[in-house]
Design a binder for these strands. Sequence first.
RNA 1: GCGGGCGUGAUGGAAUGGUAGACAUACCAGACUUAAAAUCUGAGGGGGCGUUGCCCCGUGUGGGUUCGAGUCCCACCGCCCGCACCA
Length: 851
Amino acid sequence: MSRYDPAEIEPKWQNAWDEAQTFRADAGSDKPKYYVLEMFPYPSGRIHIGHVRNYAMGDVIARYKLATGHNVLHPMGFDAFGMPAENAAMASGGHPKTWTYDNIDTMVAQMKPLGFGLDWSRMFATCDPEYYGQQQALFIDFLEAGLVYRKNAVVNWDPVDMTVLANEQVIDGKGWRSGAPVERRELTQWFFKISDMAEELLDALDGLDDWPAKVKLMQANWIGKSRGLQFAFSTIDGPDGHDRIEVYTTRPDTLMGASFIGVSPDHPLARQLEKDNADLAAFNAECRKMGTSEEDMEKAEKKGFDTGLRVRHPFDTAWELPVYVANFILMDYGTGAIFGCPAHDQRDFEFATKYGLPIIPTFLPAEDSSPELDEAFVPPKTDMVYWTKPFGWDAQTTGQDAIDAAIDFCEANGVGQGVTKFRLRDWGLSRQRYWGCPIPVVHCGTCGVVPEKKENLPIELPDDVSFDTPGNPLDRHPTWRDCACPTCGAPAKRETDTMDTFVDSSWYFARFTAPHAETPTDMAQADYWMNVDQYIGGIEHAILHLLYSRFFARAMHITGHLPAKSKEPFNALFTQGMVTHAIYVTKDANGRPVYHYPEDVTLRDGKGFLADGTEVEIIPSAKMSKSKNNVVDPMNIIAEYGADTARWFVLSDSPPERDVEWTAAGAEAAFKHLGRVHRIAQQIADAEEGPQGTDEALLREMHKTIHDVTMGVESFGFNAAIAKLYAFTNTLAKSGAGSAAKRQAARTLAQLMSPMTPHLSEEVWSMLGGEGLVANAPWPKADPAMLVEDSVTLPIQVNGKRRGEITVPRDLGKDEIEKQVLAHDAVQRALDGGQPKKLIVVPGRIVNVVV
RNA sequence: GCGGGCGUGAUGGAAUGGUAGACAUACCAGACUUAAAAUCUGAGGGGGCGUUGCCCCGUGUGGGUUCGAGUCCCACCGCCCGCACCA
């Protein structure tokens, strides 16, 4: 009798799938198509256990869909452009291309032993010229369709390294390498006009029934549709061209509580005034040193500078208000200028308190007439409020009605217009970096900025670049920039900016449908395979990647690269949690943390000890991080236990949408269980075909398990499905030996486990005489007749507390149930001779007696 | 700061508004063994009592809705994700 040996069986079945081309996808089958996709990985160097969890989930779906008669597309590729490759090149002198492709080779070699049912023939990396050349073609089509334009935008500038920094490269306002204070700098950059589609992208969320509600909500909030009033304050002796300050507000109902005007340091007025005001110039310069991220802006201490300029209130020309430049106002939203109403906005309240500005309530909570405010009163939108002052009204009205009424009133009095605005900004795609897709345009002295001819695509990155000096190597490459103008033929210069890597990942799912096509997509293939039926990835992509992809799909439809049905490219979305691992930490002599590798820590009774007996502090469920020494390498797990154990464990212990903590004990337990399944199967296989009598209870349990596991797989309840499989294994182990039913039950177990543990399942399937590959075997069906029990057990509650139970025939009438319940000892005791106030019978569920 | 989410035994977790703790881990006990490992079996939220049973308390905290709340609503606390140049 052979032991469970994954090292032997896993390669065997992987070869069998390869030879049978089990997971190769070809269009044009009679079966319904099914496209399952996991967010493709960045080639960081090695497979992470989080990847294993992500792809294991996708593989469960892919294999289940294959077994249920679908033509399945399940591809894999690499999101291969980006900063880490350049950072590695700068650190170790290699080339980003070599680094990236070496990493891809390593990671593919690590993924294959995991046994994922992937169509490897479709693999590509976004840094392949065949891919990014098609992306350049898309860019040109988008440009011609008016979906791309150029404008100035602010970037983080490192004055020492002379380079643009990403937000994550700015640490506490300083460049991560140089340590120099970061400045803001304006550059002319390319933008996708995603804001034109704001309304559509918002409205279409409603149709995404199989997306998590939280993701749709986050997207809706990000798009940020608001209806408000746009109007102007007239300035008193303002500089030329600034006799008005345009303001947008979502709270026009608070206009009579205005106490100051705030403008962004980047507002044209601020830029004009600083020319004659050295202090303001210094203040603005200070603001411009602040990080460009919204988080930095919002968390920074709110500061303002009184420009000395005054404006008139539109409803009372005698009422003058000061104009401040304020560091928390974004130039990109609204008009870059606001009016502050401290009584009804907490941020304005703090600002007004700090600078001694008046706080003028325009309404108060109904129950409180005290005009003294110690914080801003921001009424919930649905609450009733009293109007005390706005526009001379004293009506009661509710939040949104009040806002609408205020807009109407202002419009009627010639003060501004009601407008709809979106928070969503256009997508800046220019990056001043080498390792990205070159933007296929040429700067010509006579023709201006012109797109490259499509026959010249791909515009390939030059290989002969170095990273020993800061900045973009394309900028200083001696010949790459030089080219002929595609329009007039005169000598011209290429654009040296490359595209944001989000562009690469915004259409790869479409490319997978025809990865070798001579155009970005092959419409016949796209029409067959799209949409992605099930997309799986991390919640961290809930907004940007998914929103950009939704935009791209629309833009690709407009430019004829995707069918109309693909305007929403992902029919269903699932966001999975992380794999975490405990951190083991002690303190050094200076109190600084020292992190220990899991293999150096012995666990006893929930405490951890080093070899010398020192106790370590255990921080559970921490995100894996190299610097914390708590990264689990899937390759070690495969070497020790095999791929099926790794897959089984990452699916078993937590709901897929939640984080799962990797524990050595959990992996060990998973391995033991798979060994047990193997052992049970072996015993059945070895047994003589014994008594032919059936085992009704076992078969009932089997059909119930088929039902539960199928439901679990369909609804991403993998952990619950696995719990049912554990329970069924226990039942199977205890059932009498030798019956035909037992053999059938074990084969069914193998089938039900096959999406999670495909290698073991193939082995068990073949041991028990299953026909062909279990991967191709039709998914078992639960017999509805076997799912219903003849009798049910009803818990009896008294006043909501469980006091007993009765077992009755399934279809017993309500009257008879009531009679039995009232006769029950516990109920008799509770009634103490009296009558129940109420008797609630939920058939098949529960009975509650109210006394 | 803003937006979103999560919180249940020692641990991971289960539970269409209907028996809280399925399933698993750890621990404990038993079987097998010279012994250990492996394997198998069993007990098991906390507390109490008159201990074959019964009672009280229990799903982050405090309120609310309901015959009935882990689940729905409100407030708070803690942790996690995102915040537009990380991927």
